[in-house]
Amino acid sequence: MVPGPGAVPADPVKPPSRAPGPRTADHRARTVIEALPWLETYQDRIVVIKFGGNAMVDDELKQAFARDVVSLRYAGLRPVVVHGGGPQISALLNRLDLEVRFAAGLRVTTPEIMDVVRMVLAGQVQREIVGLINAHGPFAVGLTGEDARTMTATRRPAWVDGEPVDIGLVGEITRVDPDTLRALLDRGRIPVVSPIARGEDGQIYNINADLAASALAVALGAEKLVMLTDVEGVYANWPHTTDVIGRMTATELEKLLPSLASGMVPKMEGCLRAVREGVRMAHVLDGRVPHSLLLEVFTDDTTGTTVVPDARDTEDDNR
Results as ranks from 00 to 15, higher is better:
278 G>P: 08
169 L>D: 03
318 N>C: 13
32 V>E: 03
139 F>P: 01
86 G>W: 02
181 L>K: 00
85 G>C: 05
82 V>T: 10
32 V>N: 05
87 P>T: 06
220 L>P: 01
149 R>F: 11
73 R>A: 15
125 V>K: 04
104 A>K: 04
97 D>H: 12
122 A>E: 04
216 L>G: 04
58 D>P: 01
217 A>S: 05
204 I>M: 04
98 L>Q: 14
195 P>G: 08
77 L>Y: 02
266 P>G: 08
241 T>Y: 13
252 E>S: 07
131 G>R: 04
176 V>Y: 04
239 P>V: 10
35 A>L: 06
316 D>I: 08
107 R>T: 02
260 L>K: 03
33 I>T: 07
192 V>H: 05
41 T>I: 09
7 A>G: 09
279 V>T: 07
79 P>Y: 01
94 N>Q: 15
289 V>W: 04
130 V>Q: 13
52 G>K: 05
144 T>H: 12
35 A>C: 04
76 G>F: 13
107 R>A: 05
9 P>E: 14
146 E>R: 06
210 D>N: 06
242 T>V: 11
150 T>A: 09
276 R>D: 07
144 T>Q: 06
286 D>S: 07
102 F>E: 02
120 V>N: 08
181 L>C: 00
256 L>A: 15
42 Y>H: 07
243 D>S: 05
228 L>G: 06
197 A>E: 12
101 R>Y: 06
22 P>L: 14
125 V>N: 04
198 R>H: 07
158 A>G: 00
136 H>S: 14
142 G>R: 01
285 L>I: 08
293 L>W: 07
182 R>V: 08
128 E>L: 05
71 S>W: 09
250 A>C: 10
289 V>I: 15
123 G>K: 05
261 A>P: 06
238 W>M: 01
39 L>I: 08
264 M>G: 01
